[in-house]
Design a protein around this nucleic acid. Structure first.
Length: 876
RNA sequence: GGGAGAUUAGCUCAGUUGGUUCAGAGCAUCUGUCUUACAAACAGAGGGUCACUGGUUCGAGCCCAGUAUCUCCCACCA
């Protein structure tokens, strides 16, 4: 069979993924093995795969596949999130493109459009993840609006309400006038924004020519002013406290009040108080019992309550009002002013603080166990620097605004008695009716008299149950799955949602199941371009992962993404990383080509083969331990790098070259079997990172048809490491490298055979490796000697010397080189001697450190002696 | 304004209780080579005052203080 010279991933990848699915190798059901569980952070149901998903899911797949090969019952639960605000925004836009306005539709009509959209696009991203090789248990695919899932969301709401943790109240919320919904504090992004500070004259009520000048950044809100405030100790304004003052343009009379919230040094020291549109003003209003005048419609235009400018947009009004004030001679000046303005994360429009009736969850008590879990290390964050951030947030946690003025999502299970403020919270309409009848004492009450709250729950109020509800942990408590898989093990997600999601899942875990939801949280970085800019559609700097997979193979993409992405660090994406990944896959492929081309002979195993195999097995054991250590610490990139170097350098560059038969020769059968077995162990270590090519090669090495999947094969525990074997081989490798360097430097081609003389105290080792060295270095002879032969170049490897006879030795060059080495060693010896003659060092440093220094001194001295001798012999 | 973290080779990063020649890795660069698995490769080489200034110590990328620069998070200064 002809094997392609270059690895062609396309067909091989789709073949194996289909085969794996058919054999249900990713399926997990509870059994006697320990469980290892990851629940995938559910992407937006209508989302498509981007580079961030690739990074995130590759890491999860690496963890899952590795544990699967370590004897765990590995279960990776995939799924999607209904993502209420994001999805609704997409649907609204889709409808708008068809000329349909959301508000012209009934709720049910809109929802049927939304579900149609979801059916069409939902799950695309999960299909795409299959291309990446994600080894999820697809039978467990969940969606946050599945019937069962929704039940648990509503149950939780009802339960928390019954316990008095959910309350309803008028609160200042972050209003997004474009999406026409309240957004959570976490969805508001504060940006430094250049604005202006307008100084406006307000006239005192009973003194026509007396004015106070107020400084504000938002002049349009004066329509809703309820007072003007000064600091109680501000000497400039004492006389005015308690008097009335006119709001300009609309001439409404409001009081002048004193409140120590004010900063006397800011602006003019006079503040216009607008309780409906500023959180601070709202609080001042509470203290002074001020009227709340909400002048805005939900879309950010002025409502009739504003009296003037009705129907105009808030920013248009600002311009107009400034103009009108100026014309009225009431505008003193306009200063430039930079301040933080909140923007909606979703729509990027400035947030309007707005008083609104919302549902809240009291967080203070709920969050305590979740804080404790991370502080005590029961839940670990990787990298740990996020623990501080987490703690800071949890110690200052605010009540969670649960309601969203949207249609797509879990509708709040609260029913109002029509025409009244009274309400009941219940799982179903029937239940609500029962409760309402009980509450009113009117047994003849009918469903028509109830009206369900129109709002839906914040998306996070469903996804915080994710690790529980994908196993039906609330609707079917104590079922086999939840008992077996929960708590899950690792969570892989982005630091941006540490608070929105991770913290809340921890809260939910302790609150509803009394157990943490997972033990480790691995926080990935953000994928950026090589200029550190975030990947974004508008910048056009984000490649399509599927294109990359088509071009480089999923294995190449996976390796490329992981090559340089330590936990918590941003990944600076460059296509060259993916190329490197592809090249690596090709390297593995060619090792396979080489080995599979061998026809083993029945001669006994040769010395070189034995040495090579013995060394490689020890290296393999050593690196396997290294890799285990990396994985334990979640250093995925380091683990990959260890595997990469083991495969490329040790296995391909050294071991395969060591055992490669001479032209026309054959590898011994005994060696061949061992080499294949080593190759297989190496493939196993590579498999979590490159599932496809490793399966293909694994099966290819078996030669006789398909065998047990590599995916299901078990990693064997590493044997002991024989240091002496590693050291000896290292010495030979160093010797080979120095002679190669000498060839390269002198321009002596590999084609030209050379003779070698060795001066060494360890001729046994060199003798054993003589045949191997002969092949690596194209030697015509290798002999031991006590003295440097006439007319030869010298190379030093540690305390050993290699001489190469040469017709025209560059004596001058040799001398310079030796002199350089002497100078360096003298300096080194000097520092060692200095250290050792320092009484305080000798008396204070630990004995082994001192002994080490003494050994260094002795070694350096003997090497120096040797060098000086050489120098003398060469003469002048 | 508050908090956290960072600064080591051209780039991205390691450097694990201060102690081997400790200054590393990968990539990139440069020089050779189409050597019978692989030019998507092979063999070699160069490259850093560990941000700066002090301090502690026999000894400091590593610990302490200060300075500079950068990043992120939180936050209601009109």
């Amino acid at each position: 069979m002809e094997i392609s010279k270059k690895y062609q991933p396309g067909d091989i990848e789709s073949k194996w993924y289909a085969t794996w699915l058919e054999a249900r190798v990713f399926r997990s059901t509870p059994d006697h093995r320990p469980a290892y569980t990851i629940t995938m952070p559910p992407p937006n149901v209508t989302g498509i795969l981007h580079m961030g998903h690739v990074l995130n899911n590759t890491i999860q797949d690496v963890l899952i596949r590795r544990k699967r090969m370590l004897g765990f019952n590995a279960c990776w639960v995939p799924g999607t999130d209904h993502a209420s605000i994001a999805t609704e925004a997409k649907v609204v836009k889709m409808l708008a493109d068809q000329g349909i306005k959301k508000h012209d539709l009934s709720r049910d009509e809109f929802l049927s459009h939304a579900f149609a959209w979801k059916d069409k696009y939902g799950g695309i991203i999960l299909e795409q993840l299959r291309k990446l090789g994600a080894s999820c248990d697809w039978d467990r695919t969940s969606f946050t609006m599945d019937e069962d899932y929704s039940d648990s969301v509503l149950d939780v709401f009802c339960e928390l309400h019954e316990r008095g943790l959910i309350y309803r109240g008028i609160r200042m919320v972050n209003w997004d006038p474009q999406a026409q919904t309240a957004v959570s504090d976490e969805e508001v992004i504060h940006k430094e924004t250049k604005g202006h500070l307008y100084h406006i004259k307000y006239q005192i009520a009973d003194a026509p020519d007396t004015y106070l000048t107020v400084a504000t950044t938002r002049p349009e809100t004066l329509l809703g002013d309820a007072a003007v405030a000064v600091h109680p100790e501000d000497t400039r304004y004492q006389a005015f406290i308690g008097k009335k003052i006119f709001i300009p343009l609309i001439n409404r009379e409001v009081p002048i009040i004193a409140d120590d919230y004010l900063d006397m040094a800011f602006g003019t020291g006079c503040l216009k108080v607008t309780p409906a549109h500023d959180i601070n003003d709202y609080e001042i209003g509470l203290r002074h019992n001020l009227e709340v005048i909400d002048i805005f419609n939900n879309d950010g235009t002025i409502s009739p309550i504003g009296k003037r400018y009705v129907g105009m947009d808030r920013f248009a009004v600002r311009k107009q009002i400034v103009k009108d004030l100026d014309e009225a001679g009431l505008l003193v000046k306009i200063e430039d002013h930079t301040h933080a303005v909140g923007f909606s994360e979703r729509t990027d429009v400035p947030i309007e603080p707005k008083l609104s009736m919302q549902w809240f969850l009291r967080m203070e008590e709920l969050s305590k166990p979740a804080l404790e879990a991370v502080v005590s290390g029961e839940v670990k964050l990787y990298p740990p620097k996020f623990e501080n951030t987490y703690r800071h947030w949890m110690e200052n946690v605010r009540d969670w605004c649960l309601s969203r003025q949207l249609w797509w999502g879990h509708r709040i299970p609260a029913w109002y008695l029509k025409g009244s403020n009274k309400y009941v919270v219940a799982r179903t309409l029937e239940e609500a009716l029962d409760k309402a009848r009980e509450m009113t004492g009117r047994m003849d009450m009918v469903a028509d008299e109830l009206e369900q709250d129109p709002d839906v729950l914040d998306t996070w109020a469903s996804s915080w149950l994710w690790p529980i509800s994908v196993f039906k942990g609330l609707t079917e408590p104590d079922n086999e799955d939840i008992k077996y898989y929960y708590p899950t093990n690792d969570l892989v997600t982005a630091p941006e949602i540490l608070f929105f999601w991770v913290a809340r899942m921890i809260i939910a875990g302790y609150e509803f199941l009394d157990k943490k939801p997972f033990s480790n949280v691995y926080l990935t970085g953000i994928v950026r371009d090589d200029k550190r800019r975030k990947m974004s559609k508008s910048l056009g700097n984000s490649p399509d992962p599927l294109d990359l997979i088509a071009q480089y193979g999923a294995d190449g993409v996976r390796v490329g993404m992981l090559l340089s992405s330590p936990a918590g660090n941003d990944l600076l994406y460059k296509e060259s990383l993916i190329e490197q990944g592809r090249n690596y896959a090709n390297k593995v492929w060619n090792a396979f080509r080489l080995v599979s081309g061998w026809e083993p002979g029945d001669q006994p195993i040769s010395t070189s083969e034995g040495l090579a195999i013995d060394w490689m097995e020890n290296r393999l054991n050593q690196v396997t331990l290294e890799i285990e250590d990396h994985f334990e610490k979640f250093r995925i990139s380091d683990a990959l790098m260890s595997v990469y170097k083991l495969t490329w350098d040790d296995f391909c560059s050294w071991m395969l070259e060591m055992v490669k038969p001479a032209q026309g020769g054959a590898v011994s059968n005994e060696a061949y079997l061992k080499i294949v077995s080593i190759f297989e162990r190496i493939l196993q270590l590579n498999h979590p990172f490159m599932p496809f090519i490793t399966e293909e090669v694994w099966q290819g090495l078996a030669k006789r048809g398909q065998r047990e999947f590599m995916t299901l094969s078990q990693l064997s525990a590493p044997g002991t490491v024989n240091e002496a074997v590693l050291e000896n081989t290292q010495l030979i490798q160093d010797a080979i490298a120095s002679v190669r360097a000498w060839r390269s430097e002198k321009g002596v081609s590999m084609k030209e055979p050379i003779a070698l003389f060795l001066k060494t105290d360890n001729p046994e080792v060199f003798s054993r490796y003589a045949e191997m060295m002969g092949r690596f270095l194209n030697l015509e002879s290798m002999d031991f000697t006590e003295a440097q032969p006439e007319g030869s170049a010298s190379i030093r490897v540690g305390i050993h010397e290699i001489y190469i006879p040469q017709p025209d030795v560059d004596l001058e060059g040799e001398k310079i080189k030796i002199q350089e080495e002497i100078t360096y060693l003298e300096g080194f010896l000097d520092s060692v001697v200095k250290k050792l003659s320092n009484e305080r060092f000798v008396s204070k440093a630990p004995a082994d450190v001192v002994a080490l220094e003494q050994k260094k001194q002795a070694d350096a001295e003997s090497k120096l002696a040797m060098l000086r001798e050489n120098l003398e012999r060469i003469g002048v």
